[in-house]
Design a binder for these strands. Structure first.
Length: 493
RNA sequence: GCCCCCAUCGUCUAGAGGCCUAGGACGCCACCCUUUCAAGGUGGAGACCACCGGUUCGAAUCCGGUUGGGGGCACCA
């Protein structure tokens, strides 16, 4: 059975690109009946934090990308037969592997100083040569090493890169061959402080955890020969590789925090729903091969295959995400939608933009007229906020419809108020009863119904774009409707 | 600079030699519906399949080159 993994490092919040890679690994595991593993690459102690680890787990959890093995919770216990799944806790495994390579002279200690290495790079740049380690410490005698150690210098460990071509059959790109002469010379696998570097730790852990497929971003293609060389040196079977196309900024460079919104948590905060984000991410670089495009996570897993993974990078098209989000919001069951809306209403309350929280039943009654008007959950405030505020302060100039003047508007609102007050009794204040008499009023006075309705709309909601007017009046209730009309009339005087 | 990867409407993509005078979706435009805004419906503009040369009876699909774009070259991950 396939074993795949996502190995994020907790040096930042869950990134869109990491989430997409996690999703593809998850989908591959679900489709093939394999196992999906989550491993935290926290060896960069200086930059890793528990808060980021929490963000990553929470984000994957929110996306419903469930891992079969890995950390149960941030900083908590690990679950699975290959625990621990925190890379830092596997340090002894890395040390043992490093000692093994050193003992077999497949790796050697390097005492070059940062200054020496920097000078090498500068000389190479000046000579228009690619940067590579020159091998200064590659053939030190035991005596020379001892001398350096005696000076108190601590060596980093470098892997001896053998000459030749490393080839692999990428599951999405086909055969790729890279001459080891082009990978930069012998590379460091253990820092002088004894901690392992990414390229080394990742291979030791992937080997230990019996990974069968490595599905990751295209930016790792050039690193693959290093990994393959290490798998071989360590005496492990080399897993299959599949390199996914990159997610791009609008200018087609690798998606970055600088140019795009990359944190999953920001998308959550903006009211994107899980279904939409997963659907969107799955379709970035992959397709069903058919014209289906609105799919649940399970439907996607059932159809997923590496054959339909695109080779070229994909621009993150936020407009399309927003459209998909609207599609999914419209498909949500009422209770579900209400549950998801509540935090956003709470946020409106906390920000002082509304004065009270609507009850579930109040919201439920509104759903038929607002569900299709929500591109994102965070639009709930703009769409319905006027219903939950005690006092409205509409701008008098916006109450007056384009073709009308202040006096006409004032007169129209006064007559509309009288019509509403007279025609609709408190117990049957319903949309169907409100509309005919107001249309009749407009007709009788020679006003365009749309102008009258717009004046009422702004007077009562403060906005020019709202859910259907009469349903809105009903939601507001008779007393508040009349009160707001009075207030608007006063404002126009 | 060196190495590697990629190349179908603005964007996401279908397409695995004839079904393609290239299909769908987002976005855009128009119309319909309509009290505003949405949603929905209908229609439209939009890609000489980057370019050049092969292979073939026939190429978006295969091969080579060119150009363009991207990624990688750390005691970061």
């Amino acid at each position: 059975m396939p074993r795949v993994r996502i190995a994020p490092s907790p040096t930042g919040p869950l990134h869109i690109g990491t989430a997409r890679t996690a999703l593809f690994n998850y989908l591959f595991a679900r489709h093939t009946g394999g196992t999906f593993v989550l491993r935290l690459e926290d060896t960069d102690v200086a930059r890793s934090t528990l808060a980021f680890e929490e963000d990553i787990l929470a984000g994957l959890d929110w996306l419903r990308i469930a891992w079969d093995e890995g950390p149960d919770s941030a900083g908590g216990a690990d679950r699975g037969p290959y625990a621990p799944y925190h890379q830092l806790q596997r340090i002894e495994r890395h040390r043992a592997a490093a000692a093994n390579l050193l003992a077999r002279d497949l790796a050697y200690p390097c005492y070059c100083t940062p200054e020496e290495l920097e000078a090498d790079r500068e000389a190479q740049a000046a000579a228009h040569e690619p940067p590579r380690y020159v091998g200064r410490c590659a053939n030190l005698t035991p005596a020379e090493r001892a001398a350096r150690e005696a000076e108190g210098r601590r060596g980093a460990l470098r892997f001896r890169v053998p000459p030749g071509v490393v080839a692999f059959d990428d599951l999405v790109r086909g055969r790729i061959e890279i001459d080891t002469a082009n990978i930069g010379g012998d590379f460091v696998i253990v820092r002088s402080d004894g901690t392992p570097l990414y390229h080394f730790a990742v291979v030791v852990d992937d080997a230990d955890m019996a990974m069968s497929h490595i599905i990751r971003g295209e930016d790792h293609i050039s690193n693959t020969p290093k990994h393959i060389l290490l798998f071989r040196a360590l005496g492990h079977a080399v897993p299959a590789f599949a390199h996914l196309p990159l997610i791009l900024n609008p200018d087609r460079t690798k998606m970055s925090k600088r140019k795009s919104q990359t944190a999953i948590s920001d998308y959550i905060a903006q009211g994107f729903v899980q279904e939409a984000l997963v659907n969107f991410l799955a379709l970035l670089g992959w397709s069903t091969g058919t014209e289906e495009e609105i799919l649940t996570l399970d439907e996607i897993a059932a159809r997923f295959d590496l054959d339909h993974v695109q080779k070229g990078g994909a621009v993150f098209d936020r407009e399309r995400l927003e459209w998909l989000n609207g599609q999914w919001i419209r498909r949500l069951e009422p209770d579900d939608l209400i549950d998801r809306l509540e935090p956003f209403l709470q946020r409106e309350l906390d920000a002082g933009r509304i004065d009270r929280l609507p009850g579930r039943e109040e919201l439920r009654a509104l759903l038929p007229i607002i569900q299709e008007r929500l591109p994102r959950l965070d639009a709930i405030g703009d769409l319905t906020g006027f219903l939950w505020v005690d006092r409205l302060e509409p701008d008098p100039t916006t109450i007056v419809p384009k073709r009308w003047d202040g006096a006409t508007t004032r007169e129209a609102l006064a007559e509309a108020r009288a019509t509403i007050a007279g025609s609709a009794s408190p117990v049957t204040f319903e949309a169907d009863e409100l509309e005919p008499p107001l249309r009749a009023l407009a007709e009788a006075r020679g006003w365009k119904a749309g102008d009258l309705f717009m004046a009422i709309r702004v007077a009562v909601t403060g906005r020019t774009a709202t859910p259907p007017l009469f349903d809105t009046l009903v939601a507001l209730g008779r007393d508040r409707t009349l009160g707001r009309l009075d207030r608007a009339i006063a404002l126009l005087s």
